[in-house]
Amino acid sequence: MVKITECPRDAMQGIKDFIPTDIKATYINLLLRVGFSRIDFGSFVSHKAMPQMSDTADLVGKLDLSNTNSSLLAIIANLRGAKDAVDFDEISVLGFPFSVSETFQLKNTNSTITESLLRVEEISELCHQKSKIPLVYLSMGFGNPYGDEWDVEVILNYTNQLVSLGIKEFVLADTVGIASVEKINDLYPHLKTEFPQCNWGIHLHSTPDTAYEKAKAAIAVGCDQIDSALRGFGGCPMASDDLTGNLATETLLTALEATKTSHDVIDMNAWKEALNYSNKVFAN
């Protein structure tokens, strides 16, 4: 059973022109009706670093959770952001981007890996106190363009440290689109064997021509949760100027159907409404 995390936050965050909060809310409310397991809807991070997400606190109050099975996931980068996020009953999951590349961790969260481990420890403790789920993205999980050390042992080492801090939800993130079918096939069996108590997801940034095969590989190795974004919008604005997009949700659904893999039940009428409305959200 593959659960899907739809990622409007990741799709919107790099857009320079501010998307009005009411438009964001309408779009996310449509996505909440589709049937995704989770909606990665916003982030509590520096407004200067990510101005598009500066209205996340206001956005929460405009979301209708009365008729959805989807849970809300918010991104945080430090304890301050986590404290802001846990005050909202509507938010179930807090996601922290932990890079296995020192260079990118400094670029993305202005902290070293050692400092980030301390942040994760604090955030994990807070989440458990407030009955939230702490999730860690292993950013640059398939390698990095900076020459920082990367291999299976690096991933296993940091995962072991994070598990000791109370983390059981992980998403291996292909931040700059350099994952391959071979890397997916190599990494996940190690992770699922070494840490069977954990939930293992994947967040792929990809060009359209390679996305389908990568999605099929993620399904084949038994990813528990797969992130995607409608039409493949978005990417990571902190990584590069010439980004590939997110794995398109429609590509993921095609791969799930082709492999006869059970997944979240999708309301196709709600899906079409969200698809049509996305033209207004991403008009720029």
Rank of each mutant, 00 (worst) to 15 (best):
D10R: 08
T207A: 12
L191I: 05
A179I: 04
L65C: 06
D10L: 04
N269A: 12
T5E: 11
I219K: 08
P8N: 10
M268S: 06
E153Q: 15
L94V: 09
S180E: 02
A57R: 12
M268V: 03
T159P: 02
K48F: 02
G35H: 11
K130T: 13
N67L: 04
Y212W: 02
T210W: 00
T259L: 14
P134E: 13
E250H: 06
K130H: 10
E115Q: 15
D22M: 00
N199M: 04
A274T: 10
F18C: 04
V86W: 01
K214T: 02
K272I: 11
I113G: 05
R119Q: 15
D186W: 03
G234P: 00
I28P: 12
T251R: 07
M140P: 04
C7K: 00
W150Q: 06
L106W: 06
I133H: 06
T193F: 02
L172P: 10
M53N: 04
Q161M: 09
A77P: 00
D55L: 01
N157Y: 13
E102V: 01
T5Q: 13
A220I: 03
R119V: 06
L275F: 14
D186F: 05
L165T: 09
S101A: 08
A173P: 07
N67H: 13
G232P: 01
N157W: 05
R9D: 08
